[in-house]
Structure formats: structure tokens, C-alpha cells
């Protein structure tokens, strides 16, 4: 997740700068998202073997699209006049990005992280089928054993994790929006 956040952020910033790259980045990350999770995990286990690493990489790839897209959208929504003023006052390109553009785009970027997180929590359960040690395990065992209680408990856990992660990031997003929308 952290890896996805960093990669996504960097790609998003680059995408906002170069329109050609933007199209490419959105296309690639978009295609990844359409690959069914089961199939993606299957392919990655062929490369990385059964277990956690394959699933982690797969999840990171899924998380990319919302993060890249929102970073780009967030930066694109910054008022050009504000950026112009920042440049005109003598900020270097890095200063414009770090002091003006990213802070202003932060609520939208966090929105992307939130979407990605919720999605990843849900997809992670599927990871258990390729041997990852995660919340999908109890769920999967429950299904195998036809144990209703175990399925229910697993689903509830996954749901609770997703909902709480979402709520936490939503609160962060709201907190950050304060003062940033003119």
C-alpha cells in the first residue's frame, strides 16, 4: 500500500506535468484495474511464487489508478493564477510544487488514497486463494469447511476494516479541505 502510494503520487505528479505521459499512465493503470483479481494474482504467483509478495504487488498495482488519477486531478484543479503568482514571485519549480500545488491538491489526493485503500482491503481477501496470509484466510477456510459462522466472522472483519479505514481517511480528507477551497 505504501509502495503504491509513493509510486502513484510520483506518477500522478509527472502525469500532471506531461500530457502524453498522463494518457499513458491512466491507460496502463486503467487496464490493470480491469484484470480480474483472481487472474492477476494467478499470473503474479507464476512470477513470484505462492505467498505474500505476489499478492502485495498485485494490490499495489490495483491501488495505482485511483492514486494516480486523483493526484493528477488534484494538481490540475489548482487555480492557474495561483501557480502563476507563485512563479512570478520567484519560487523554483520544486517550491511551487511542494509549497503551493501539493498542499492545495492534498484533499483530492487523500480522496484517491481512500478509494484505493477500501478497494485493496476488499481485493486482499482474494489473495488468500494464492496462499497469502491475510484476512481472506478465515473466509476461505469457512467456505471450504462450509462453516457459516467462519464465513460470517471473516466477512465482518473485512467489512469492519474497510469501513474504519474509509472513515479515518474521509475524516482526514475533510480536515484537509478546510481552507483549501477558495
Amino acid at each position: 500500500m505504501a509502495a503504491a502510494a509513493v509510486t502513484g503520487l510520483v506518477t500522478g505528479v509527472l502525469a500532471a506535468r506531461r500530457p502524453r505521459l498522463e494518457a499513458a499512465a491512466l491507460a496502463v493503470t486503467g487496464v490493470i484495474l480491469t484484470i480480474p483479481s483472481f487472474a492477476l494474482f494467478g499470473m503474479l504467483t507464476i512470477l513470484l511464487g505462492i505467498g505474500n509478495p505476489a499478492v502485495e504487488l498485485g494490490l499495489a498495482l490495483y491501488a495505482l489508478l485511483p492514486i494516480v488519477r486523483n493526484t493528477r486531478t488534484g494538481l490540475g484543479a489548482v487555480d492557474p493564477a495561483v501557480v502563476e503568482a507563485a512563479r512570478g514571485m520567484g519560487m523554483s519549480p520544486a517550491q511551487v510544487l511542494l509549497r503551493v500545488e501539493l498542499p492545495l491538491a492534498l484533499p483530492v489526493i487523500v480522496g484517491g488514497l481512500r478509494q484505493a485503500t477500501v478497494m485493496v482491503v476488499a481485493i486482499a481477501t482474494v489473495g488468500a486463494t494464492v496462499g497469502a496470509n491475510d484476512l481472506g484466510q478465515p473466509l476461505l477456510e469457512g467456505i471450504r469447511a462450509n462453516d457459516r459462522d467462519a464465513i460470517f466472522a471473516g466477512a465482518l472483519l473485512v467489512g469492519a476494516l474497510g469501513v474504519s479505514a474509509d472513515a479515518l481517511l474521509a475524516a482526514l480528507e475533510r480536515g484537509l479541505s478546510r481552507g483549501r477551497t477558495a
Partner: peptide
């Protein structure tokens, strides 16, 4: 010094 239309203040 540089002043633009609608000031271009940093909203945050």
C-alpha cells in the same frame, strides 16, 4: 513585486 488579476493569493 508581482500583482495579478484577482490577486492569485494562496488559498491555503
Amino acid at each position: 513585486g508581482y500583482v495579478i488579476q484577482q490577486a492569485g493569493l494562496f488559498p491555503h
